[in-house]
Write a protein that binds this DNA or RNA. Structure first.
Lengths: 235, 235
DNA sequence: GTCTATAATGGGATAGAC
DNA sequence: GTCTATCCCATTATAGAC
């Protein structure tokens, strides 16, 4: 069961020049890159520090020197990007709330602020970001009882709260709980899709690709914006 | 292979036949129950056979005696319920396709055939079913590259295909790919929600409960039925 | 900071008595 | 079918040389 993941997925951790000029600062980064990639595919339990060290071309002991423990390394992977990522999403939400026009369009702008910002990082932020986004979605799909999800919560809980507030302000005619339901459905689909489980590819026979995230956004935003009307949103 | 030890040793035979027949099936069932529960929370890698044996009040060696290997045990957990479960969903779909009325209602009936049937098993099938449904959703959220997802695919891929067909037949005015997108969104939200990640509870401050799946169905079906109108479905 | 070596533990799997 | 005992290997983590 433990096959070489790089061969299967054709993926590598974020690449760095082979020739090391300054090893010291780069080593920790390489370990983070490797951990980010491997954790994003198999989760916390499915990856060993040995695999991470090998993927990073680093000796095993260095993972402990730089990060102390496996759990610490996992947290470090998230902490490297989470604050910046959450801030980007918050900024996009602010811009979306400044949009004027029909409420349907304003609703779409809000939803797009979340999914399009995430997709932008995954598609145009470099290979590390793609892995990070997958990891983010992966963790979001796990029970909150797991300890390793807590770093994720501290960074993103308030973001989600702000989105619900924005939608509630846009739709005073809706019951507050219905707004929460609707956004939860949107968020649920988002996190499922971004793990790239490959289901979409298989079910469509390749006509729809999980990797084509831009096409995803174009379908997802109008679909979910319309969904709110099923819960009583006036158009 | 599995000879009766009493015959070989010449000891008395018929002393415990009833006890053996009662115990034999029960042990394997207890192991399956424990594995089902633990796998559903922490996944394949996050659980050890020792934990499973302890949870089942059984010695470690018995897990190997009854199931051979860890992978085999995982498959056995799925095989115990998957065929019955898939058949229930298929039957519900057939009944939904017999519904007459407005297309919106027929669309809701189809979506409900999936989610309500799953929720029915989770809520009213007993504790084992609740764990199975969580495991089902858990695995659906994992990359298809993982080998342990294949037993799920063989049991459920055709079910999903039939749902897409039913929706496509209902909406000839929609592009076939858009129907696939819409159902994929629905399925994505379904699998995310059923892992009971606890997000909903946290975000709503307890006003919405992940465990209240019946309330979920009441919101989810109209929401996603309306979503299709965002992709060009005539009402 | 990086290396080799090793401790200490837990993992899956098996043998053989009963 | 169930038990005890054990093998063998992978795991996380640490010690100490350089």
């Amino acid at each position: 069961m433990e096959k070489n993941l790089a061969e299967i997925t054709g993926q590598k951790a974020a690449s760095h020049p082979k020739v090391d000029r300054r090893r010291a600062p780069e080593t920790a980064e390489r370990i983070l890159d490797a951990a980010e990639m491997l954790f994003s595919w198999r989760g916390f339990y499915g990856v060993s520090l040995r695999e991470i060290a090998a993927e990073a071309n680093v000796k095993l002991a260095l993972t402990h020197y730089h990060f102390g423990s496996k759990e610490n390394l996992f947290s470090a992977v998230i902490d490297r990007r989470a604050a910046d990522h959450a801030a980007r999403i918050e900024r996009a939400l602010e811009q979306a709330m400044a949009v004027t026009g029909a409420r349907r369009e304003r609703r779409e702008a809000i939803l797009s602020a979340l999914i399009a910002t995430i997709v932008d990082r995954a598609m145009r932020g470099g290979p590390g970001w793609k892995n990070y986004v997958r990891l983010l979605a992966f963790v979001a799909n796990h029970p909150q009882e797991e300890e390793y999800v807590s770093p994720f919560r501290t960074h993103y809980d308030h973001v989600i709260h702000d989105f619900v507030d924005a939608l509630s302000a846009l739709h005073p005619e809706m019951a507050a709980l219905d707004v929460q339901w609707g956004f939860f459905f949107f968020q649920a689909a988002t996190t499922h899709i971004l793990v790239e489980s490959g289901m979409l590819d298989r079910q469509s026979g390749g006509a729809l690709l999980s990797s084509d995230l831009d096409a995803l956004v174009d379908r997802m935003v109008p679909f979910f914006a319309a969904g709110f009307m099923g819960l009583g949103a006036g158009d």
